[in-house]
Amino acid sequence: MSALTLTMKHRLDQRVDMSPLVCHKLAGLTPEQIGAIELQCGKQKIRVDSLFKIQGDDTQNLIIANSFAKLDYIGKELQGGQITIEGDVGAYLGMQMQSGVIHAKDDAGLYAGCEMKEGLLQIDGNAGDFLGAALPGNKQGMKGGRILVKGNVGERAGDHMRRGAILIEGDVGAYCGSRMVAGTIAVMGQCGRYPGYAMRRGTLLFWQAVQAPATFNDCGSHTLAFLPILFSSFGDLNSHFAEPSEVFNRVQRYGGDLAETGRGEILVKLA
């Protein structure tokens, strides 16, 4: 069996809801049946085969080729299987995914991995605001799994995050880990203003120096035994996070946000 490949024929003006095209919903369907699925596009519904050229038949290994930034909800509620996207993707990539792997080879839009529950979401390019966050009005963002971004990330990454890990090789915008309930966000690049704003618990781990907000207090430099274990859990990733040279256990610890319950922490790598 070869991967089920959906190659986009032409680009539309309206955004497309790609949520019906997830591995578990496609299981057992023939290419003809998949072609007949209707996608919401603005006010209209369009058939998959009118938008994509369909090749291959392995529904558990889905490739979306020639993608662009108006394809939303790719991998929504994914339950197993793998989705690979060649080209940019729109908003809500991997929203509420429950298991499996999503690999976006270029940039992703807003709310990637929002309210994700389990699995691996890898973005090779940049990601927009609210990565791994909660949807507006909801109280819990990402609840498990791992998000790896090789590029830069926008603002409010991990907003209301509850559990799991967000790994960012590049820079991250302002309010990283805002209102975080628990979990881990690790950033190798620069961090914007107000990291950990109103965070309750959880860990923000930075490779570069950060300006800790006024509501975080310096707890000193420490050797923390859990860090090597955390790094070893990244060993299976195709990432700088998996490199032994990146492992460290000496950090400067800032506790906060003391305007909230103050049980969170910002850890900054010490040379």
Binding site: L224, A225, I229, S233, E265
Partner: peptide
């Protein structure tokens, strides 16, 4: 002041103690 970390499906507890942290 204890902190929970769930790593690779295993839960760990970080307990602050006078010499640092008990994991």
């Amino acid at each position: 002041f204890q902190i929970s970390k769930k790593i690779n499906g295993k839960r760990y507890w970080r307990v602050p103690v006078m010499d640092g942290e008990f994991l």
